[in-house]
Design a protein around this nucleic acid. Structure first.
Length: 587
RNA sequence: GGUCCUGUAGCUCAGCUGGAUAGAGCAGCUCACUUCUAAUGAGCAGGCCCCAGGUUCGAAUCCUGGCGGGAUCACCA
């Protein structure tokens, strides 16, 4: 039984013995004692005043005394107002360190036999990735890591939006103005190359439209008509068009792969919309048969969700073609056929909240096996200090540029400090990469996903304060001490060690880690892990500042502090790994 | 207009399943490197937790109603 559960059952026994009260564990608010009071865990006794018919202070004292004499864990207690502060026998914490410091799977929850699929990134293939995708990718990746560590089997996937009018626009522009150029011939990364033609298309269309307006003509620009014709040919499987489409998409995928590599992310399975966009139709037929859907006079198919507080929603056009919802129904079902997952998480921006609310309701009515496990990890838009990112105004922050910038910043910062002279170039650039990306990833993931966030490029590469590098630095400090310690090995046991306040605090924090992982997995929220890592690093920095490790005389103290440090390093690395952040050994 | 999200220090954010005197970082001002790395630590200053009611022994946290910001209410994806 865990410590908390043991305390709770002790308190239950106390309440039963003292007041014949039958309290459920959930009624027992047992929280870590606030720093300004002494004790380890605090029980709030106000809820029992009515049933026990006593003053809060008396109840707290009664329970405290009962626990002290019946629970060996509880060494002492104090009462302030209605708060019972319990002090755990310090040997418990020392024993905890002894046990868990060698546990290579500390913070890994037991396998629960469930499968979860996480969809994230899901780009269009007509332009490069930008800052918004980065938030999406980091959230999805981190979420997948957290779920994996919380005991799930995780399948990472994305749906690639590789068809539609926007792709055809890039194609038209390239066919008209590209003159056979390629990413190689132009020295551009594939996705940027194709993106260039998407921009070119928009410029062309606007120019044509302006000319038409000036001439008093109405209607669509000729180039738009060409793009539409291309889409029609694509849908009719025209081999020539398909070949160009495949070639251009191939360039884009090459480019994306480089960005994914740079970010250190990967996927287990890719779904392409060109394969899936027709999948939903058979479910429309099923829905019609079962009466879930209904047909309007024009032949379009709808579902009525008004009894669930939503509107009517179209699921098939009158001409029999799919809409977004049709595709998502089909894709979800086909994923289930592929993987039989228990849960399905979509990492998609919050502008699609309503879409997913409707989709999940439909899947529930379809009685899909995984419908209780559907979750939309919705995140807010990323703003710049100057306002919204707008592609028309050229204020979009490109993903590749951003990655380069943060690494460059980490590099120049480190060179200024000049502490890495002994490392060779390859080592150095790897360290700078870890620091730069650590800064970027932490900066984005520390914010609660639901919140719209402001991204200040200057602040994102800041290496002081509540940042990724600050946490990495705590790890590096430990590693440096451990390296030095390894030079003169010694044996000692710290069984009877008497801890300093900061040491106890660090241990209690380490103790929390599995709970943090569990909570983050339940809430699909990496920011709680980020904040935990920060608090742990902060306490370690303070400990490191106040207490020597290698310079203390007593072998017992030295051993304890080394072991404690080692475990802090392990948990920091493990926690940051959940955010997709790699730790440098030196910095 | 309906629905959903959001509002905490000058700025960026924690805390929100109700608990003790609301916390960090940045920016500003002090101080501490002959040290296991100062990418650090200690301190000062900075708050009608958007407003008004309600529930409660207790509200930043829950409820109601406002106000500000955002999204959405497409046969685009």
């Amino acid at each position: 039984m865990g410590l908390i559960a043991q305390l709770q059952s002790g308190i239950q026994n106390a309440l039963e013995a003292l007041y014949q009260l039958d309290a459920s564990a959930s009624q027992l608010v047992l929280s870590p004692t606030r720093k300004e009071f002494s004790g380890d865990f605090t029980l709030v006794v106000f809820p029992f005043t009515k049933a026990a018919k006593k003053k809060p202070e008396d109840i707290a004292n009664d329970i405290g005394n009962h626990l002290k004499s019946n629970e060996s864990l509880v060494k002492d207690f104090n009462v302030i107002k209605g708060f019972l502060n319990l002090e755990i026998d310090p040997s418990y914490w020392v024993e905890f360190l002894k046990q868990e410091s060698t546990n290579k799977s500390f913070g890994h929850l037991e396998k629960n036999g469930q499968k979860v699929m996480v969809e994230f990134c899901s780009p269009n293939t007509n332009k490069p990735l930008h800052l918004g995708h980065i938030r999406n990718i980091l959230l999805g990746w981190s979420c997948a890591k957290i779920l994996d560590q919380a005991g799930y089997e995780v399948i990472k996937t994305q749906i690639i939006n590789d068809r539609g009018i926007h792709i055809c626009k890039s194609m038209v522009a390239w066919m008209e103005t590209g003159e056979g150029s390629t990413p190689e011939s132009s020295g551009l990364k594939g996705d940027h190359f194709v993106g260039k033609y998407y921009v070119a298309y928009n410029t062309l269309e606007r120019a044509e439209k302006d000319k038409m307006t000036a001439a008093g003509e109405e209607g669509d620009a000729p180039i738009l008509k060409k793009a539409r014709a291309l889409l029609k040919k694509w849908e009719d499987q025209d081999p020539e068009v398909r070949a160009i489409w495949e070639k251009m998409n191939g360039w884009v995928y090459d480019g994306f792969d480089q960005t994914f590599d740079a970010l250190g992310v990967s996927f287990d399975k890719l779904y392409y919309e060109s394969d899936t966009y027709l999948l939903g139709k058979k479910y429309v037929d099923q829905g019609l048969e079962s009466g879930l859907f209904f047909k309007k006079e024009d032949g379009s198919v709808w579902i009525d969700l008004e009894d669930a507080g939503m509107d009517q929603k179209i699921v098939l056009r009158a001409d029999g073609t799919s809409v977004y919802m049709t595709q998502d129904i089909g894709t979800a079902q086909s994923r289930y056929e592929d993987y039989k997952m228990d849960k399905l998480v979509y990492v998609v921006g919050d502008e699609q909240n309503y879409h997913f609310k409707v989709l999940f309701e439909i899947m529930k009515r379809f009685k899909a096996n995984y419908s209780d496990g559907l979750f939309h990890l919705s995140y807010g838009m990323v703003d710049l200090p100057t306002g919204k990112m707008k592609s028309r105004e050229g204020t979009v922050v490109d993903a590749d540029d951003l990655i380069k910038d943060v690494i460059r910043e980490a590099t120049s910062n480190a060179n200024e400090r000049g502490t890495l002279v002994e490392a060779n170039d390859a080592e150095q650039s790897d360290i700078f990469r870890r620091i730069g990306l650590g800064a970027l990833k932490y900066f984005i993931l520390k914010v609660n996903p639901k919140k719209r966030m402001t991204f200040d490029p200057k602040e994102s590469v800041d290496l002081h304060g509540n940042t990724g590098p600050y946490i990495q630095n705590a790890y590096v400090r430990i590693k440096s001490v451990l390296r030095k310690a390894a030079e003169s090995p010694f044996e000692a046991s710290f069984d009877n060690y008497k801890m300093e306040a900061l040491e106890l605090e660090l241990l209690k924090q380490l103790f929390q880690f599995p709970e943090v992982v569990k909570g983050a997995a339940e809430a699909y929220d990496p920011s709680s892990v980020a904040n935990y890592c920060y608090e742990l690093a902060k306490n370690y920095h303070r400990f490191y500042h106040d207490h020597s490790i290698l310079k203390v005389e007593e072998a017992v103290t030295k051993k304890f502090r080394l072991t404690l440090s080692e475990m802090v390093a392990y948990v920091l690395a493990s926690g940051m790994n959940l955010l997709g952040v790699e730790m440098p050994e030196k910095m």
